[in-house]
Amino acid sequence: CFKERTRSLLREWYLQDPYPNPSKKRELAQATGLTPTQVGNWFKNRRQRDR
């Protein structure tokens, strides 16, 4: 489970760009304390949910 602060940050970035490039994923990973893989998976799952 991600912290609420982490989730809200991911949601904000998702609204700006649902397909972040690898450098954006690394930047988000540093900002949230997650790994780039976790960030990528979150975006993938979120895109799937929005279908």
Rank of each mutant, 00 (worst) to 15 (best):
C1Y: 15
F2L: 13
F2V: 12
F2Q: 11
F2M: 15
K3M: 05
K3A: 09
K3W: 06
K3F: 08
K3S: 12
K3C: 15
K3R: 09
K3I: 08
E4D: 06
E4G: 06
E4C: 04
E4S: 12
E4I: 04
E4F: 10
E4N: 08
E4W: 04
E4H: 10
R5M: 11
R5E: 12
R5T: 11
R5D: 11
R5F: 08
R5S: 15
R5C: 08
R5P: 08
T6R: 07
T6C: 06
T6N: 07
T6E: 09
T6Q: 13
T6Y: 09
T6L: 11
R7D: 10
R7V: 13
R7A: 14
R7C: 08
R7P: 04
R7Q: 12
R7T: 07
S8I: 14
S8N: 13
S8A: 14
S8Y: 13
S8L: 14
L9D: 02
L9P: 04
L9A: 07
L9E: 06
L9V: 13
L9T: 11
L9K: 10
L9M: 10
L10A: 01
L10N: 04
L10M: 08
L10W: 00
L10G: 00
L10V: 00
L10C: 01
R11C: 07
R11Q: 10
R11A: 12
R11F: 13
R11N: 12
R11K: 11
E12C: 02
E12K: 09
E12L: 07
E12V: 05
E12N: 15
E12T: 09
E12S: 10
W13V: 13
W13P: 03
W13T: 13
W13F: 06
W13S: 13
W13A: 14
W13D: 06
Y14C: 02
Y14D: 00
Y14R: 02
Y14S: 04
Y14E: 01
Y14P: 04
L15G: 07
L15C: 15
L15F: 12
Q16F: 12
Q16E: 09
Q16C: 10
Q16R: 13
Q16A: 12
Q16T: 10
Q16M: 15
Q16P: 04
D17P: 03
D17N: 05
D17C: 03
D17W: 03
D17A: 01
D17K: 04
P18V: 04
P18T: 05
P18K: 12
P18F: 04
P18C: 13
Y19V: 06
Y19M: 09
Y19C: 09
Y19S: 06
Y19K: 12
P20V: 06
P20Q: 02
P20M: 04
P20S: 00
P20E: 03
P20F: 03
P20H: 00
N21E: 14
N21P: 14
N21W: 05
P22I: 13
P22D: 11
P22E: 14
P22Q: 10
P22Y: 12
P22H: 04
S23W: 03
S23R: 06
S23Y: 03
S23H: 08
S23A: 14
S23C: 11
S23M: 09
S23K: 06
K24H: 10
K24M: 10
K24E: 08
K24W: 01
K24T: 12
K24P: 01
K25S: 06
K25Q: 12
K25C: 12
K25R: 11
K25H: 05
K25F: 08
R26A: 15
R26W: 09
R26G: 10
R26M: 11
R26I: 14
R26P: 01
R26C: 13
R26Y: 09
E27W: 04
E27L: 06
E27P: 03
E27V: 05
E27T: 04
E27F: 09
L28W: 05
L28Y: 14
L28K: 04
L28N: 00
L28H: 03
L28D: 03
L28I: 11
A29K: 02
A29Q: 01
A29W: 04
A29I: 01
A29R: 00
A29G: 07
Q30K: 06
Q30M: 13
Q30C: 10
Q30Y: 09
Q30D: 14
Q30F: 09
Q30G: 11
Q30R: 08
A31W: 08
A31N: 06
A31G: 04
A31C: 09
T32D: 00
T32L: 07
T32Q: 00
T32W: 02
T32H: 14
T32A: 07
G33N: 14
G33C: 04
G33D: 07
G33M: 03
L34I: 07
L34G: 04
L34F: 02
L34V: 01
L34W: 05
L34S: 05
T35N: 10
T35C: 04
T35M: 04
T35A: 01
T35G: 02
P36H: 09
P36N: 02
P36K: 13
P36I: 12
T37R: 14
T37N: 09
T37L: 10
T37E: 15
Q38M: 05
Q38F: 04
Q38W: 03
Q38H: 02
Q38Y: 02
Q38V: 07
V39M: 00
V39D: 01
V39N: 00
V39Y: 01
V39K: 00
G40T: 11
G40L: 03
G40D: 10
N41R: 15
N41M: 09
N41T: 10
N41I: 05
N41V: 09
N41S: 10
W42Q: 02
W42T: 07
W42F: 03
W42D: 04
W42G: 02
W42I: 01
F43I: 04
F43W: 01
F43Q: 02
F43Y: 04
F43D: 02
K44Q: 14
K44A: 09
K44P: 00
K44M: 06
K44G: 04
K44I: 05
K44V: 06
N45V: 06
N45C: 07
N45T: 10
N45I: 07
R46E: 11
R46K: 15
R46N: 07
R46L: 06
R46H: 09
R46T: 12
R46S: 08
R46Y: 06
R46A: 09
R46C: 05
R47G: 01
R47D: 04
R47F: 06
R47A: 07
R47Q: 07
R47C: 03
R47P: 06
R47L: 04
R47W: 04
R47H: 05
Q48S: 12
Q48Y: 13
Q48L: 10
Q48T: 10
Q48K: 15
Q48R: 15
Q48I: 08
R49G: 08
R49V: 11
R49K: 14
R49D: 13
R49F: 08
R49A: 10
R49S: 09
R49Q: 14
D50N: 03
D50G: 05
D50W: 00
D50K: 03
D50T: 05
D50E: 15
D50Y: 05
D50H: 06
D50C: 04
D50S: 06
R51S: 15
R51H: 13
R51G: 08
R51V: 07
R51L: 09
R51F: 11
R51T: 06
R51W: 09
